[in-house]
Amino acid sequence: MKRIIDDIENDECTKTEVEKLLDYFEIVMASIAGTKAYKGCYNLADFDINKQCGLRNFSLVMERLNLEGQTFVGQFWFGTFTSGEKKLKVSGHLEEC
């Protein structure tokens, strides 16, 4: 499936942090898409690849919504990363390739 980022709202995250957090968003979105989970909370310190990225203090709350009858039909994902005063809100979806 193709991972699509639809919108971001950045509050005090650096450009590098945003790029890396968007990678995490896409990974989590794709990994739980095949499950029945509709909401999850993650501590980025628990991800193995995070040791190289320096995002240990961030957490992610991810939520899936089914949007039927809208301009977009399917599963839409909302995520909020937080670390102290920093916050990044992301929305996205998956498309068939």
Rank of each mutant, 00 (worst) to 15 (best):
residue 1 M to E: 09
residue 1 M to K: 10
residue 2 K to Q: 14
residue 4 I to S: 08
residue 4 I to H: 01
residue 6 D to C: 13
residue 7 D to K: 14
residue 7 D to W: 04
residue 8 I to A: 04
residue 9 E to H: 04
residue 9 E to W: 02
residue 12 E to N: 12
residue 14 T to W: 03
residue 14 T to I: 04
residue 16 T to V: 14
residue 18 V to C: 09
residue 18 V to H: 01
residue 20 K to N: 14
residue 20 K to I: 07
residue 20 K to F: 11
residue 23 D to G: 09
residue 23 D to R: 06
residue 25 F to I: 03
residue 25 F to R: 02
residue 26 E to L: 07
residue 26 E to V: 06
residue 27 I to V: 12
residue 27 I to L: 13
residue 29 M to Y: 01
residue 30 A to Q: 13
residue 30 A to N: 10
residue 30 A to L: 10
residue 31 S to T: 06
residue 31 S to V: 00
residue 32 I to F: 15
residue 32 I to E: 12
residue 39 K to L: 00
residue 41 C to V: 06
residue 42 Y to W: 15
residue 43 N to W: 06
residue 44 L to Y: 01
residue 44 L to R: 05
residue 45 A to N: 13
residue 45 A to S: 15
residue 46 D to F: 10
residue 47 F to P: 02
residue 48 D to I: 11
residue 50 N to E: 00
residue 52 Q to S: 10
residue 52 Q to D: 14
residue 55 L to A: 06
residue 56 R to A: 14
residue 56 R to F: 06
residue 57 N to T: 11
residue 57 N to W: 03
residue 57 N to E: 15
residue 59 S to L: 04
residue 67 L to R: 15
residue 68 E to D: 10
residue 68 E to W: 02
residue 69 G to T: 05
residue 71 T to N: 12
residue 72 F to R: 13
residue 73 V to S: 15
residue 74 G to C: 07
residue 76 F to C: 12
residue 77 W to A: 07
residue 79 G to E: 05
residue 80 T to S: 15
residue 81 F to T: 08
residue 82 T to Y: 00
residue 82 T to P: 01
residue 84 G to E: 05
residue 84 G to R: 11
residue 85 E to I: 08
residue 88 L to H: 03
residue 89 K to S: 13
residue 89 K to H: 10
residue 90 V to G: 01
residue 91 S to N: 03
residue 93 H to K: 11
residue 94 L to I: 13
residue 95 E to T: 11
residue 95 E to R: 10
residue 97 C to V: 10
residue 97 C to S: 09
